[in-house]
Nucleic acid binder design. Structure first.
Lengths: 112, 112
DNA sequence: CCTAGACACTTAGTGCTGCTAGGCGTAGTA
DNA sequence: TACTACGCCTAGCAGCACTAAGTGTCTAGG
């Protein structure tokens, strides 16, 4: 996997897993790994700053809790975050289909 | 379109249009715009450095010519470039399908 | 008891890459 | 004459994912 491939798509991934219910950071990482079948195996230092950024932008809300002696910070999608998700989903689809359109192998022009 | 979305995928796009025949830089830009239905409307300063980098890596060969008083530099895919294209195609498919796998909306667990 | 590893969070700094912005030059057209 | 399309080039910028290092809890194994 290209080391730059995720650039510009990470927010979408994080918003997407949070759309199915609140999760704490570590669980977000886990979900991304599971759902992508180990393709997206992200470092904590990659994901946590994203969560902070999304919260700062108002797309997430966080809440501290303690489970089995370990403190957790759980994130919930806001209305704004949900809208952002919809928009980024659409953007992704445009991007992906454009990529595929370019990738289609065109035959050489038939010059008789 | 996200301004970072292309990161890590641009080489693939350029290699892909060149796989269908030699093109000069300006024509590469044009092809990308046409095939993507105006989604990829790249600046010259974006594409030319990519061509130079790919040539330096041995994936392309270039040749100068003059057409209607204007000098052109046409690029041809090398065998190495063709292999690179195949590999990057595969990488893209893994990436795209992983993205889509994460984007699938999972229903909330049914807790009665 | 002590160590290793999973769990859980944080953040300063780095590196890569696409993009901006500016430059050069020709040909056609209004 | 000036503007646009064609055609090329590159130094520097910006923004993002990632590295690396830190803190701390809990459990399992030797």
């Amino acid at each position: 996997m290209n080391r730059e491939a995720l650039k510009g798509h990470l927010d979408l991934l994080v918003l997407s897993v949070l759309a199915d219910g609140p999760l704490h950071g570590y669980a977000v990482i886990e979900q991304l790994r599971i759902r992508s079948l180990d393709v997206f195996d992200l470092a904590e230092g990659t994901v946590y700053p994203v969560l902070h950024r999304l919260e700062l932008a108002g797309h997430l809300t966080s809440e501290w809790s303690e489970v089995a002696g370990r403190r957790r910070r759980s994130y919930v999608l806001t209305r704004s975050g949900s809208a952002q998700l919809d928009q980024q989903r659409a953007t992704w689809q445009v991007f992906a289909s454009s990529m595929n359109a370019v990738l289609v192998r065109k035959p050489w022009p038939n010059t008789p």
